[in-house]
Amino acid sequence: MSEFQWLSWIRGVGLQSAVAIFCMGIVWRTMEIYTLGRKLDIAEPRRISGASGWHTIYRRFLAPLGMIHLDPVTYIGGYVFHLGLLIVFFLSEPHIHLIRELIGLSWPALPPSMIDIVTIVTLITMIVVLVDRVRKPLKRFLSGFGDYVLWVITFLPVLSGYLTVHHLLLPYTILLALHMISVEVLLIVFPFTKLFHAVTVWPSRWFNGNTNARKGVPV
């Protein structure tokens, strides 16, 4: 198989399959989780302003009082690399081009130099977060094999994207192929691993917020 065919497979059949598995997984897992049913709370609720599931969805973006000092790496690292991933994915020119191709929507891109800075910051932050996971006994204890594999799976698309744009280390074709295949792996594992938190985090926050809001505690 030549590079050309390899790349063609990855950007054709490979990506189609990955997207298909991703779509299937999202629907399957969402249904699997959210059709289990729940008992409604029938205790007389206490209504106070500023407490509801919706408030909690927003409020959990913020670090609770004092917590940021207890574990700054997790909080700041978490903010930075999540924001970095969002910016790199949604605001870089090639990705906007792709989104326009797919759904017809587009928006202005950040200049490539900005994207470069964000990418490097994201990569460094992810490394810091990983080192923290390995070094801190608590996190190491809670981490399984999957946590490390998923770190790699999240890290590689960013790294390969950067290398592709700058033509570093390997021929462009191979880099482009690696970038796409790393994204495909990410798409495939997404619904079946903790990456799925991107979907479940919102209802989880809502459930928690709602439970507490009924008691009158703005959490």
């Binding site: 989780i33 959210y34 049913g37 996190k139 809670l142 938190h197 209802p203 989880s204 459930f207």
Partner: peptide
């Protein structure tokens, strides 16, 4: 139930609960 399922799927092993 659904909330418990949702919670388990959301956990990132970040250790902040500890």
């Amino acid at each position: 139930d659904t909330p418990i399922a949702s919670y388990f799927n959301s956990c990132l092993h970040c250790g902040l609960c500890a």
